[in-house]
Write a protein that binds this DNA or RNA. Structure first.
Length: 599
RNA sequence: GGUUCAGUAGCUCAGUUGGAUUAGAGCAACAGCCUUCUAAGCUGUGGGUCCCGCGUUCGAGUCGCGGCUGAAUCACCA
């Protein structure tokens, strides 16, 4: 708000001083750099073009006008062509008074923005979730929270990939080597059980291929000729023909997997507004493709396979239906996109999917456009980088993955070790149990979300996740510290208690350096949120929360609160502390991280 | 080979729509701070060819072009 006032005033000043109207983008107001007096800074270089004066002189003239014009401004100074405005203390006192106990400070107006459908998670039902899925889920959830907090209407959807050749592999392995094993009989989580059979399939498949290769076939030939290849294909055809036995087996095994996923999702704090199943949507895709074929938008090869030619768009020819008439990945995605658009008519459809599918989404958008769906432009592929291990790549088939459930267990147990060591919360109690879960998951979530989604991450299972420094637990700790301080305060005399509606009468109060920085940082929260929403960037929120926590710890270290003898200063610092605690809590909530009151 | 993305301290990463003679955090290393509101904290020291070159600009880690390195992708897998 104040930033807008200063901007408007500066625009007017330039207009009346130099008779020129510059576009608003030229007026850059930024927080004043640390170490220089001031709260906000206008960069005046762009204005020198119309003032025909040196930057310093131009800054002086504009500074004079704006300071007279905007009542909140106390003074201005000019350094190197940067015009720094200092706001009156009363502005900051008002800011503190109005917002310190507002638990939703900085959020956008509800549903004032776009309607956004965001798809994430999208698991295959043939294996349990691993670290890569964790990144997907956390990004999806955090981006949803951020967009929603910024005032958009967000619909979270999950597209479960419950059909296809990969599922058939697990099914065949279970039939051949499963001995009717069930989650109950083996006391394994259902998704892990099914995943084990996927690995089992691959093991046998590899052996078969090797045998054939020894007989003189090339690798490709061997893969094609391996009996398991044919069996899987036949099973898929049967599945599409709705063969009763195949479908029954399929449903049973999928149920096992869903039960397992539910546990993992719940623990990760992930939820959805709507779940689609590819088994229920792929037919629509086939139909759309058939229509397009009839309209002559795409072509059929002599072997009956259907293709779209995107060479004019700089891509290749792309398969839409196999020669046996079954659908491929893109066929399904065409169907689900259409279904989703018709159901919600969103302004934007976001897909949180790994960067290995960038090409796929290019194809999807172009295909939909070709078919006449202009809303394909609303599709945004939020791609994120692979998670790599120090030990090499993760491959489900080969079992070299960091399993999501195990990872969470490990984080929790590490947290528990630290809790025991510290002895602040009694070991072995329910409280310690809950705290270790909260802290362990915070470490994991923060570790993943603080990195820009675009970047690929390196994960070292042994030593990657820390509990000190720029971490989730550090921020949680700061929150707990503040809560503890506030609890102590209200347990003391009345003069330390912040009643609801308490307002500080302190026009003349003087904020010290760190207090000013805290206020500015808090003031910046709405700006940060808006930008994070615009950029779909949980990392910006994580970074913000860290900076704020760090700042508060510095404040805490050398500024007395309860021991301050001046009652007004004491209360001001309590208010500031509460404000920071609320803000940390909100920021972390956006990342799907809970913060404890005690740790 | 084509396309897309990335390259910043020993390691993991920030770095705002280009902005301040000094490019920041954390980890690791070293030196301090617990009788005092929670030491999962705070303070300090060392550590840089922002991959290279050219260009645009008053100003480039940020934008453009060319190159180098790495990753992903270009499947009748999903």
């Amino acid at each position: 708000m104040i930033v807008k006032n200063i901007t408007d005033s500066a625009i007017n000043a330039v207009k009346s001083l130099y008779g020129a109207e510059l576009p608003a983008e030229q007026f850059v107001i930024q927080p004043t750099r640390e170490g220089i007096k001031g709260d906000f800074t206008l960069v005046v270089f762009p204005m020198t073009k119309v003032s025909h004066k040196a930057p310093a002189a131009t800054a002086e003239e504009i500074g004079e006008r704006v300071t007279n014009d905007v009542p909140e401004i106390e003074s201005y100074s000019v350094i190197n062509g940067f015009l720094n405005f200092t706001l009156k203390n009363s502005y900051w006192v008002d800011f503190l008074n109005e917002n310190y106990e507002n638990e939703t400070f900085g959020g956008g107006e509800k549903n004032s923005g776009d309607k956004i459908v965001i798809e994430f998670s999208s698991p295959n039902t043939n294996k349990p979730l691993h670290l890569g899925h964790v990144r997907n889920n956390l990004i999806g959830m955090a981006v949803s929270n951020i967009l929603s907090a910024a005032g958009n209407e967000v619909v979270k959807v999950n597209l479960v990939n419950d059909r296809g050749i990969h599922i058939c592999k697990s099914m065949i392995a279970w039939l051949k080597w499963g001995n009717c094993e069930t989650p109950e009989s083996s006391s394994k989580k259902g998704d892990h059980l099914v995943g084990d059979y996927y690995v089992e399939f691959d093991k046998h498949f590899k052996e078969d291929v090797k045998l054939l290769e020894n007989k003189g076939m090339t690798e490709d030939e061997a893969k094609e000729k391996a009996p398991l290849t044919n069996e899987t294909r036949q099973m898929l055809v049967k599945w599409e023909a709705e063969d009763k036995d195949v479908r029954a087996l399929w449903e049973m095994m999928n149920e096992w997997v869903y039960a397992g996923f539910d546990v993992t999702y719940k623990r990760l704090g992930v939820s959805f507004d709507k779940i689609y199943y590819e088994s229920q949507t792929y037919l629509l895709g086939k139909k759309v493709v058939a229509d397009a074929l009839q309209k002559g938008l795409i072509t059929k090869d002599p072997d009956n396979s259907v293709w779209i030619d995107l060479t004019n768009e700089g891509l290749d020819r792309k398969l839409l239906l196999r020669k046996d008439g079954t659908s491929v990945y893109i066929t399904q995605d065409i169907g689900t996109a259409l279904l989703r658009y018709n159901e919600f008519h969103p302004d934007k459809m976001i897909y949180v999917v790994g960067n290995e599918q960038i090409y796929h989404f290019d194809v999807l958008k172009l295909t939909l456009k070709r078919f006449g769906y202009d809303w394909a432009d609303f599709i945004y592929h939020l791609s994120y980088g692979m998670v790599e291990l120090t030990t090499g790549k993760m491959k489900s088939r080969e079992g070299t993955v960091v399993d999501a459930d195990e990872l969470m267990d490990e984080m929790k147990s590490t947290a528990m070790d630290i809790i025991r060591e510290q002895g602040k919360v009694e070991y072995g109690t329910r409280e310690a149990e809950d705290l270790s879960e909260m802290v362990g998951l915070a470490a994991l979530k923060y570790y993943i979300l603080k990195v820009d989604p675009k970047k690929q991450m390196l994960f070292n299972p042994a030593e990657s996740i820390d509990f000190n420094g720029n971490t989730g637990p550090f921020i949680q700790y700061t929150h707990a510290r503040i809560r503890s301080l506030l609890a102590r305060a209200s347990a003391q005399t009345e003069t330390n208690t912040l009643d609801n509606q308490f307002r500080l009468d302190g026009e003349d109060i003087v904020f010290n350096e760190v207090e000013q920085q805290l206020l500015r940082s808090l003031h910046d929260y709405p700006v940060m949120l808006e930008k994070a929403a615009k950029d779909y960037s949980p990392a910006q929120v994580a970074n913000y929360a860290f900076e704020l926590a760090k700042l508060y710890n510095r404040f805490y270290q050398d500024t007395p609160v309860l021991k301050e003898t001046d009652e007004r200063l004491r209360k001001m610092r309590l208010m500031l502390s509460l404000f920071v605690a609320n803000n940390i809590k909100n920021s972390m909530k956006l990342l799907g991280i809970n913060v404890p009151d005690k740790m």
